[in-house]
Amino acid sequence: MARPLFMSIFLLLFLALFLLLFRQKKVVYQFLVYLVMMVLLGIVYLFLGSEFLMAFQIIVYAGAILVMFLFFLYLYPEEEFKIQDMRNSTLIKTLIPSLLFVITLILILFTFDVREYEASASVYSVKELAKLIYNQYPLAIFLLAFILTYPMIAIYLLMKGSESDD
């Protein structure tokens, strides 16, 4: 009973945030709308039975990546972000294909109703996920660990760069 109620609330929240995005002129406010969206997305993951993804989304995405972006937003002069393409023709030329893309995606997903999909696991827990990762995807987890060293080096370089700049 609680699930449909919460999901409808979340859908309304996302819609409201999407409409709020059109009203904002300043970049920082638009960024804040995105930030709230990402944190809410983390809570939506909770309804999909994966607490670990929720924690990962909030710690890594909202907590590290977007902070890094905000750091950058303040490094540049504010005039840089005022270049805005206000011509309606360009907006239509670009927005209509993307709208079409999303609508067809939604249509395909809504009509795609294959219930005889073979389920490989029915338990949703962190330990189950860890078992799957380490037993079936050792190469993927190795790649993941390797890739995660890049942002660490990158952040270090960023901090050094912003120090020596001024």
């Binding site: 990962f56 990546i65 890739i147 995660l148 942002p151 990158a154």
Partner: peptide, 13 residues
């Protein structure tokens, strides 16, 4: 998500 983190940091540089 981790690929996104890496690409984001490198893109910022």
């Amino acid at each position: 998500l981790s690929v996104a983190a890496a690409s984001f940091a490198i893109g910022l540089i």
